[in-house]
Design a binder for these strands. Structure first.
Lengths: 257, 257
DNA sequence: CAGTGGTCTAGACCACATC
DNA sequence: ATGTGGTCTAGACCACTGG
């Protein structure tokens, strides 16, 4: 009972009839696991302890741990692999995990992953509008990356990415170019910043001169404007991104259910 | 044991070591429930039997039924309500259930549901392109509805909706106008066609003359073009929709996770 | 083979809604 | 008070993985 440091000494018992705001045991376990994930107790790609281990640590039944892990897996924080274990999700492993947040697809339905070219990295002060999205004071120091995605060599998406500078200390173009893998994989391994969730707002706009040139389309051509705010643990926003996307041979794909 | 007609006499036992393709019991229960939903055994909005009832009917434990229902609820086919029961999902009940598939939001973040105006209903033959999406032969008889969505009186989305005629026999503009509620609610109650899932492809286009007029924007203005294929039970496509959307004061919202 | 996650059971009790 | 879904347990066994 007193053997494990991570045991939740303050865990409420399963029965708590008079508690005004009832929280199930498995939710508490989930919170504990989330906190440990956030603190970096287990690195991305590593396995967490087995369900039986955790059940013993937390002094609950396996089924309760199971339900907590089920939810975390449903939120893509963990990945279950039968026979092997439960692993911390990462943006670095498979192609599909690297492009989990990319919704741009070919019109003919074939799978194709784009090549990314970082155009430049600049230090700047955040504008009022973006500051609101990032929940930081206006004028906060930020990094602004510009990036081009090419599908089969064809320039298709021009991204402008704003990051809170304090979380990405020392980020340079050279460091980025030396990295193999996706941008979120880069953030994860180099800065320990894990993108868990994002909200996107899509509009239609006309290409301005410089964008038209970069994407090789006519001035004034219609483009998708995809604005994204990406969040890490605790719903903390850490990235604002505005992507301009040609839809000659690609589209933005979404599933409703 | 022999009292209930719906009992699955052919349910495999829980253990089946040598079966090449193993299917868990709860998946079989899920299939049975899905079939009964599809057959209209329980109407949208009605409650299905309690977990205990179903467990007895199917001769399995309550936990197994629970897991089956959990998945169906996760797929939005059923809705659980603690203390009351489990209900067949519907597009007719609450505001939010009526607009479950609508992703157009105000830029300022306020909630607002649009007013719908059906412009016309026409009989036609399906084009090759749409036929492919609907998985019917080219030239199949279809209904084509045109509709305008207004947010706060401002025309914002112009939809052209193609339906396989054989599933919507007798649909007229008058019948539609007499109906209170959303379009999918109309389809559900009048024709028994339930939209369960949809895939959307989004592009940016320039407004043509007639669209510009309907949406009160300049000729050539950039618009979102949202193409949707909606599916009913068994992943059967039953609707193709092309929406043209102004994004002056609205946007298309999406969550990535 | 041992260890992991995945399924299934039976039973107890809790929270919520309704009568 | 009763019936519903929701939580939790303890234990058994299955399917998958890797040494």
């Amino acid at each position: 009972m007193s053997e494990v440091a991570t045991l939740p000494a303050n865990a409420v018992s399963a029965t708590q009839a008079d508690t005004p705001s009832f929280q199930p045991l498995y939710q508490q376990i989930k919170s504990l696991l989330t906190r440990q994930l956030e603190s970096g107790e287990w690195r991305p790609g590593e396995s967490i302890p087995s369900e039986i281990d955790l059940a013993a640590r937390f002094n609950v039944s396996q089924g309760t741990v199971r339900k907590a892990i089920d939810e975390l897996a449903g939120e893509n924080l963990l990945i279950r692999r039968q026979g092997k274990g439960t692993f911390v999700a990462t943006h670095t492993e498979t192609q599909s995990s690297m492009f989990r947040f990319l919704r741009v697809r070919r019109n003919d339905g074939q799978d194709e992953y784009p090549a990314s070219e970082l155009l430049d990295v600049k230090r700047a002060r955040v504008t009022a509008e973006v500051a609101r999205s990032l929940e930081v004071p206006t004028g906060e120091a930020v990094l602004v990356l510009r990036r081009l995605l090419r599908y089969g060599g064809v320039p298709t998406v021009l991204d402008e990415i704003t990051l809170v500078a304090s979380m990405f200390k020392g980020l340079t173009k050279e460091q980025f170019d030396a990295f193999e893998g996706s941008m979120y994989g880069f953030f994860e391994t180099q800065f320990g910043v894990r993108m868990l969730r994002a909200e996107e707002q899509i509009k239609a706009v006309s290409a301005d001169t410089t964008t038209a040139e970069a994407l090789r389309v006519g001035m004034g051509s219609p483009l998708l404007c995809v604005e994204r705010v990406a969040y890490t643990y605790g719903d903390r926003p850490v990235e604002f991104r505005r992507g301009l996307c040609t839809t000659r041979s690609h589209h933005y794909a979404n599933t409703l259910s």
